[in-house]
Nucleic acid binder design. Structure first.
Lengths: 114, 114
DNA sequence: TTGACATGCAACCATACGGTTGCCTATTAT
DNA sequence: ATAATAGGCAACCGTATGGTTGCATGTCAA
């Protein structure tokens, strides 16, 4: 998971995924067309994505074809994001309630959250 | 979105969110108990989370209370992750099909991965 | 009032990261 | 056979990042 989060943290890498999302199985050179940086830089990004298992590479002669693997992205959602989703409405209510509680002057400590 | 992705990229920050998820409205000192690093380091992480709008801060006297805001996380899913989810099964099929296709063409120069 | 407590501010440091350049290798087309 | 094409490897560089320490400030309790 760590690698996936890290991989997704960069705009260029998300771009690459989006490009592959549009049309899978692209070559390195093809992908370079979508980012204004050197081929080497793109290679590095792709390597990171590969290590995070977000893309799979298949060699075809001298060409390196890149395929998107959406599974890790799904896992990120499944094992981390989804719980926040479920919690969402509830949490906002909490904040408001606690803000209300704060208005009561000194007396007991104002700390008590939830 | 950029700030949110960046914020989520760090393990310590995800930890902080998880801790707040467990019990909302914690103080800085309280949160420090969950990460083995200096208070200042934690402050920096919290600042980043705050700037990404992932937490909201409420002062109560000399204490700074931190509240989780799950909305940006939900947006990340909604505007980015969800599309990969929908695409998921389909994309895997593509990879396999393309791999099959590669076995045929002229020189039969195979890539060979997976 | 005074001290302890909760936090902020700023300087500093090592390392990770995104990017570049130069050169080398392997495949393919002519 | 040769040249063009697709890509890899490695060194280098500036800046961002995660972390530290020292000191300052505001609030609460005795």
């Amino acid at each position: 998971m760590e690698a996936v989060f890290k991989a997704l943290a960069d705009k260029s890498r998300r771009r690459l995924l989006d490009v592959l999302f549009g049309k899978n199985g692209r070559t390195l050179n093809e992908l370079c067309g979508y980012l204004s940086m050197s081929r080497q830089a793109v290679t590095k990004h792709l390597l990171l994505l590969e290590r995070a298992n977000l893309i799979t590479v298949v060699w075809s002669g001298r060409e390196k074809l890149h395929y998107l693997n959406p599974v890790p992205i799904h896992q990120i959602y499944d094992r981390w994001i989804s719980k926040y989703d479920r919690h969402r409405i509830e949490a906002l209510g909490e904040l408001k309630n606690n803000l209300e509680a704060k208005r009561k002057p000194k007396g007991a400590r104002t700390g008590g959250a939830v």
